[in-house]
Nucleic acid binder design. Structure first.
Length: 580
RNA sequence: GCGCUCGUAGCUCAGUCGGAUAGAGCAACAGCCUUCUAAGCUGUGGGUCGCUGGUUCGAUUCCAGCCGGGCGCACCA
């Protein structure tokens, strides 16, 4: 295409600057909404026409003439049209489709690799270890995990990471909450003590707090004897605090990992915030070291004022600069975040993806400011991509399920998985753009209806598999089945199906470029639909010998569909069952 | 108050860096099982793309204002 445009430009002496500008933007290829508009199309001629002041259809005609002089055009396309206001519409030739199917069945990759693979880190979930994962975390988990899989599939070097916020007051509060629950269990509940430890805050509640206290109580080896005496006597020493904090956090992290594991989400690394605060052999914490470096090397981005250390986040449209080290010498959460991202840049990532809950959107500007400074300091291009996951509202039979984190009345991810199952939960989370709020209806997600397209897609896959089993039992060796001849597939339904199949790789690339997952979910639903349609209208297994070439081609087509469905579902973390 | 974000069919949502007659599912209505799985298929109805302006050959898409919903605005974590 680019060649054709250059050629057209040269042969018709189009202004060079117009040409350069257009080609720099790249040739945009679209999948037309309607099949009559072809398999690929480009509005290129229209934007060129604008710059040149010529009629779009005339420009399109000139490009088309040049295209015809390129040999590949003939083998790839059966037809190229000029349509509408000036679109160039391309229709793939049957040999092209046939080659595509052969390739699908050959076992080679279904997805093209990116020209320039990037080293990408995807950080997601990163929930505070102060309680079990709830439905909101689940959406982030499903999204981050699938996004990482997609990025990997298109050829990037991807690692995943969970940042554990295990430092600071929240953890102390957790320890105190469990301690108080323990006191209650041993018959020492006292509102006076609660106020002394927690002030007028409520601390963490919820059954899991009492559960952890009970575990500590029931495990005689868990709590050392001297500490046990302190606790029973109501002496809340530093040792008691750190024991309860550590034990609670460990127990909660275990639970989180179990939930994630059940959900099919694994991380290459768990990164503990606490390690950033620990002092090294030089007596400095990682945070202190990074801030000192940045203060020296960042050209004023980090500066001291009013007894505190600041970061010039206003450089990236933040409302005000932000404090890193308070005047009392302690570090803010933001400082730890900087050290963490500095560490990631140091590890050589080209792109850092941060998946956050949408309620953190106010932090974007300051983190982008940090990323900019870190990238400059590293003297290479490092991008920070922040994905904000909008909230999930849980419904049951169309009515809102109340969720109040403060009162500990949230619905946990584990509960949803128990009730709805992993496949339907993951798929439902990923059917919508992560940027729009999601209504998750428990009763509908459980139903095996079209409100729940996961079954629709899985069913299409199961259909292929049981078909192949059926074919096998009729003596067709599907095992090493590599038909070469797909010319019998002349039905329009076959053509639309293959047309859609040929988009698989492109859909993944588009998803990877925009850091989205739901295009894949939408695509799989459409592909399943096209296959159901084809299956219903065309009998695939035939008893007649004369129909054997048709049957072989249709079986091959089905196998290829099955492969794409299985591959797509795997990226979503959803099983592709052989039968349902 | 300031900032971010969303507003598309009765409902839940897509809509490709501005492009062709704005799509899908659900719900509603009407049909299809002696056949490879009916968890499926076929058809019908359903729209002021929040409102008003602007830019453009062309706006659901970009800009401004307004209306309505969500969220965020600490030397908190």
């Amino acid at each position: 295409m680019t060649r054709a445009i250059r050629m057209a430009g040269a042969q018709n002496s189009w202004p060079q600057d117009v040409l350069d500008r257009a080609l720099a933007r790249g040739v945009r290829l679209e999948w037309p909404k309607k099949e009559e508009f072809g398999d690929l199309s480009t509005p290129m001629a229209m934007s060129l026409a604008k710059d040149m002041g010529k009629p779009p259809r005339h420009v399109a005609g000139t490009i088309l003439e040049s295209l015809r002089q390129i040999p590949e055009t003939l083998s790839l396309f059966s037809k190229v049209d000029i349509a509408g206001p000036g679109y160039l519409n391309f229709f793939f030739s049957s040999p092209y489709f046939s080659d595509f199917l052969v390739q699908c069945l050959s076992g080679s990759a279904l997805v093209d690799r990116v020209a320039i693979p990037k080293k990408i880190n995807v950080e997601f979930v990163s929930a505070n270890p102060t309680g079990p994962l709830h439905v909101g975390h689940g959406r982030g988990a499903a999204f981050g995990d699938s996004l990482a899989r997609i990025l990997r599939e298109v050829g990037h070097d991807v690692s995943t990471e969970y940042y554990i916020n295990d430092a600071g007051n929240q953890m102390n509060m957790l320890g105190k909450s469990v301690y108080l629950a323990f006191r209650k269990l041993t018959g020492h509940e006292s509102s006076e003590e609660k106020v002394r430890l927690l002030g007028d805050t409520e601390g963490y509640r919820g059954d899991y707090i009492a559960g952890i206290a009970k575990e500590i109580l029931d495990n005689p080896r868990g709590l050392p004897e001297d500490l046990r005496e302190d606790v029973l006597a109501g002496r809340f020493t530093d040792q008691v605090q750190s024991f309860f904090t550590d034990a609670s956090q460990r127990r909660i992290m275990e639970g989180i990992r179990e939930d994630l594991d059940q959900f099919g989400v694994t991380f290459d690394r768990y990164f503990s915030e606490k390690t950033l605060h620990e002092k090294g052999t030089d007596g400095l914490s990682a945070i202190a070291r990074w801030l000192a470096r940045l203060e020296k090397e960042s050209d004023g981005a980090v500066y001291a004022s009013d007894g505190a250390l600041w970061f010039r986040t206003t450089a990236m449209a933040d409302d005000k600069d932000r404090v890193l080290r308070k005047s009392d010498g302690s570090y803010t959460y933001f400082a730890a975040d900087i050290a963490y991202h500095a560490d990631k840049v140091d590890r050589g990532y080209d792109i850092m993806v941060d998946v956050w809950g949408a309620d953190h959107h106010g932090y974007q500007a300051r983190m982008q400011a940090v990323a900019k400074v870190l990238s400059e300091r590293a003297k290479r291009q490092v991008d920070l991509k922040i994905c904000l996951i909008q909230l999930v509202s849980l419904l049951r039979d169309g009515k809102a399920v109340s969720m109040s984190t403060r009162a500990g009345e949230f619905v946990t991810l584990a509960e949803v998985l128990d009730e709805v199952g992993v496949d339907a939960t993951r798929f439902s989370y990923l059917t919508r753009s992560h940027e729009s709020a999601l209504e998750f209806d428990l009763s509908k997600a459980k139903e095996r209806s079209m409100d729940n397209p996961v079954y629709y897609v899985q069913y299409a896959h199961a259909r292929v598999k049981s078909l192949l089993a059926q074919a096998n039992s009729r003596g067709v060796e599907v095992g090493e089945f590599h038909p070469k001849d797909f010319s019998p597939l002349e039905e329009p339904a076959a053509r639309s199906l293959i047309r859609l199949m040929a988009q698989f790789s492109g859909v993944l690339h588009r998803a990877a470029e925009s850091f989205e997952v739901h295009p894949l979910t939408d695509y799989l639903t459409a592909l399943a639909g096209a296959y159901h349609h084809y299956y219903f209208h065309h009998r695939i297994l035939s008893a007649e010998d004369a129909d054997r070439p048709v049957m072989m081609a249709r079986i091959g087509l089905s196998m290829a569909v099955g492969r794409i469905l299985a591959s797509g579902l795997a990226l979503l973390g959803v099983r592709a069952p052989d039968s349902m």
